[in-house]
Design a protein around this nucleic acid. Structure first.
Lengths: 168, 168
DNA sequence: GGCCAATCAAGAATCATTATCGTTAGTGGC
DNA sequence: GCCACTAACGATAATGATTCTTGATTGGCC
C-alpha cells in the first residue's frame, strides 16, 4: 500500500477525524476514503454512486461499510441525507453550502438544484411556536421541470381528476 | 356476500369511481373498499395500517392490491403520499384538507400535525421562476418535538460537531 | 347472460438497507 | 514502538417495503 496514500485530499476530513476521536470511534482508512469521496463531490450522491467512485479510485470497500460510514457522517452533522422520491437516499456534505438551503428537484431528469430563502427559517419558527412544537430542522422541496427539460420540450402532465368545483 | 354491502360509505368515492371509468379501469370491489378506508380516515395511513383496517372490516385483500390501488389513488390526485422518514410511505386523502398544507412531524412519537402558510406557494413560484423551473408541487416538513413529548420531558439531542467557527 | 380482458390473491422476486460472523486492524497502556 | 482488546471490516444472509408473476376470478360491454 503506497506508504502515505493520498487519502487526506479533502480539507474537511480533519473535522470528521476529530468527530470520530471525540466519540471514541476508530479512525479507519475506509471511513476516511468514504468521507473523502463525499466531501470531494458537490453532488447529491447515492450509495451506488459512492460505491462507483470508490471503485474508480481502486478502493474495494464493502457496501455495508459505506452505509455504516454514511450513518456516522449524518450523525456528525457534516453530511445530510435526502429522499427525493427516487426510492433510495442521497447524501450531500454541508460545506460550501449554506445552512438551511433547500432543493428544486426535476421530476423528469431527477437533477437537483439548490436554493436558499432565509424566510423559511422564520416560517418554521413561527409555525412551530404557534403549535407548541420545538423545531429542530425543516425540509422544503420544490418539484417541477428544470430549464433543460423544458427546453427539450418535456411537459408537465396531470392525469388526475379535474375538479374545479373543489378548491382543495 | 351481503347483497349491496355498505361499501359506499365515503361521499368521495364517486369521484374515484368516475376517475376509474374515465380512464378505462375497472371499478372493482377491492379498489372501492381500499379507497373507502383511506377516505374515511383523517390520519396519515401506512399500507400496514390500511391492511389492519381492512382486516377489521372483515375484508381479505392482498397487500399487492393495496399498493396498486394506492398508486392509482395518488395518480388520480385524490390522495397524496408522504415519506416522513419512517422507512415507508404514508397516505392521506386531500378532502377536508386545504390544498398546499404542510406537516409538522414529531421526531420522537412520529405524530403528524398539519399547518398551512399560504406564502409557501408564493415562495415556490418565485424561486422556480428565478431558476427557470416550471413548478408542479412542493413539500415542506418541519421536524421537532410535539407539545406532548415536550411535556413528557423528552428533549432534542444533538450529537454532531459543534463548530461555531463554520457558519455553514 | 356470457365473453374477454383486466384484476385479484398469494407468494416469489427485487431493491435498498441492516444484521451476522469470523477475520482484520485501530487504540490505549506499557 | 509492541500487545492485547475492542471495534470495524467484508461477505453474505436477513429484513422490510414494494413490485412482479401466475393461474383463478370478475367487471364491462354487447
Amino acid at each position: 500500500m503506497a506508504a502515505t496514500e493520498a487519502v487526506a485530499t479533502s480539507p474537511y476530513l480533519h473535522l470528521f477525524r476529530r468527530y470520530l476521536r471525540q466519540h471514541g470511534l476508530p479512525v479507519t482508512q475506509q471511513r476516511e476514503v468514504v468521507a473523502d469521496v463525499v466531501f470531494s463531490s458537490s453532488a447529491h450522491l447515492s450509495v451506488e454512486e459512492i460505491e462507483a467512485e470508490l471503485k474508480k479510485r481502486g478502493e474495494r470497500i464493502g457496501k455495508a461499510t459505506i452505509y455504516r460510514t454514511m450513518e456516522i457522517l449524518v450523525r456528525s452533522g457534516l453530511v445530510e441525507d435526502h429522499d427525493f422520491g427516487d426510492g433510495f437516499k442521497r447524501y450531500e456534505h454541508l460545506f460550501g453550502h449554506q445552512r438551511g438551503h433547500q432543493h428544486l428537484v426535476c421530476t423528469h431528469c431527477r437533477s437537483v438544484t439548490e436554493f436558499r430563502r432565509p424566510e423559511i427559517q422564520r416560517i418554521q419558527d413561527e409555525v412551530a411556536r404557534s403549535y407548541g412544537f420545538l423545531p429542530a430542522r425543516h425540509r422544503l422541496e420544490v418539484y417541477g421541470l428544470c430549464p433543460d427539460c423544458r427546453a427539450n420540450g418535456v411537459e408537465l402532465t396531470y392525469d388526475g381528476v379535474a375538479c374545479p368545483a373543489l378548491t382543495f
